[in-house]
């Protein structure tokens, strides 16, 4: 008999990946130009974690799933319009900054505090999910920090699969160097799993799921607590989009044979 899980997914809100990102430096340090105007999405790897979490919760009766997110409320509202149609969830919202230059340690502390306050959460059943890196800070540290804040010493990063076993333990597949996977077995929750892409595609939009979710999401957004983050001995001296411009030689009207010869010569020379 599998044991049921209380799955908490931490997911940030990041700019829609096709947007042009341009850093600007203001009084409070660097941020993205027009940050509030950029369309946002649920962080891609964290979204995979959410889908995997929902799948696991569905498979094991009695399991529960929360989505905990720290972002400006307006952005969260916007992202929930899409994300809430994907899987059944309960939202725990923290209203605060979510840009890539915001300190991870303080972000983690706010998120851990929000998780501690979830009334029905049974810590002994907790699987803390998230992306192994965000598309904003892209450091791969926040989730570990939350785990530590909560005192969880079994942590996995780059996770592509979790397989609950009959004895209450679970097997985890983590990405390691050379396109390999490390297989570990953990005796049971609590544990932290930072997800890579997993194996599930993005779920279809489901209006029924959306309607049901919204009943709890709207009040959660209205209840969102404000979180403030101040710089702590961190100073940015320069932030820029890399401007590496190459002189591209454009080869037109050359027969395929000739191009092929040129390419072969290029790839075979040391």
């Amino acid at each position: 008999m599998n044991q049921l899980f209380h799955i908490v997914v931490c997911a940030s809100v990041v700019p829609d990946p096709l947007q042009t990102l341009e850093p600007v430096t203001g009084a409070n340090g660097p941020s993205l130009k027009n940050e509030m105007m950029l369309p946002a999405i649920l962080d891609p790897w964290a979204a995979h974690a959410l889908y995997e979490g929902a799948n696991l919760a569905r498979q094991i009766a009695g399991s529960k799933l929360w989505l905990v997110s720290l972002a400006p409320k307006a952005k969260l509202q916007q992202v929930m319009m899409t994300a809430a149609q994907k899987v059944p969830l309960q939202l725990v919202a923290v209203d605060g900054p979510c840009g890539g230059f915001v300190d991870a340690h303080q972000t983690a502390a706010l998120l851990a505090a929000a998780i501690r306050k979830i009334p029905e959460l049974d810590f002994s059943r907790l699987l803390l999910f998230g992306g192994w890196e965000s598309a904003s800070r892209s450091a791969g540290v926040t989730l570990q920090l939350i785990g530590e804040e909560l005192g969880i010493v079994d942590q996995f990063q780059g996770v592509d699969a979790i397989k609950p076993q009959d004895d209450g333990s679970f097997e985890v597949l983590e990405r390691i160097e050379g396109a390999r996977h490390q297989v570990s077995v953990c005796t049971g929750p609590p544990a932290v799993l930072g997800w890579a892409t997993g194996s599930l595609g993005e779920p279809r939009n489901d209006p029924q799921v959306g309607m049901a979710n919204m009943r709890s999401i709207m009040p959660a957004l209205q209840r969102a607590t404000a979180g403030t983050i101040a710089p702590d001995g961190l100073q940015y001296s320069n932030v820029a989009a890399p401007k590496q411009q190459r002189q591209t030689q454009i080869v037109k009207d050359k027969p395929a044979d000739e191009i092929a010869r040129e390419i072969v010569q290029w790839i075979t020379q040391e």
Partner: peptide, 20 residues
Amino acid sequence: NQWVGTQLMSSGTVQVWPGT
């Protein structure tokens, strides 16, 4: 549109579902 949508979402009385 985004601004109007935010006001609507804040009201909590109607649901708007993009991507559908």
